[in-house]
């Protein structure tokens, strides 16, 4: 019973770290890219349509790590494989 509680507690901490650090990294990346987009658009406004597609695709790439982290966090929340070590 104590082992179960310990595993659940540490898993909760891990889920928080996965989502929190992933979101922080993605936000920093998106912030840098959006600043560069605005700078580029201010220098050459005629390039906005071309930059739009690239920014969207790069947003997807930056967010990919966060989305994978969310998937892993959900796996640990709903189907925790670490609980299988506890004898039934």
């Amino acid at each position: 019973m104590e082992a179960l509680a310990l595993i659940q507690a540490y898993t909760g901490v891990g889920i928080g770290l996965i989502i929190g650090l992933g979101a922080a990294g993605a936000c920093i990346g998106i912030g840098i890219m959006c600043a560069s987009f605005l700078e580029g658009a201010a220098r050459q406004p005629e390039m906005i349509p071309q930059l739009q597609g690239k920014v969207f695709l790069l947003l997807g790439l930056i967010d990919a790590s966060f989305i994978i982290g969310v998937g892993l966090a959900m796996m640990f929340a709903f189907a925790n494989p670490l609980l299988s070590v506890i004898p039934k």
């Binding site: 998106i30 605005l38 406004p45």
Partner: peptide, 17 residues
């Protein structure tokens, strides 16, 4: 407008997530 494009892109990303 660059700002409008950026807001649309961020909205799109939020909806996606």
């Amino acid at each position: 407008e660059a700002a409008t494009v950026l807001v649309n892109l961020l909205k799109a990303e939020a909806v996606k997530i």
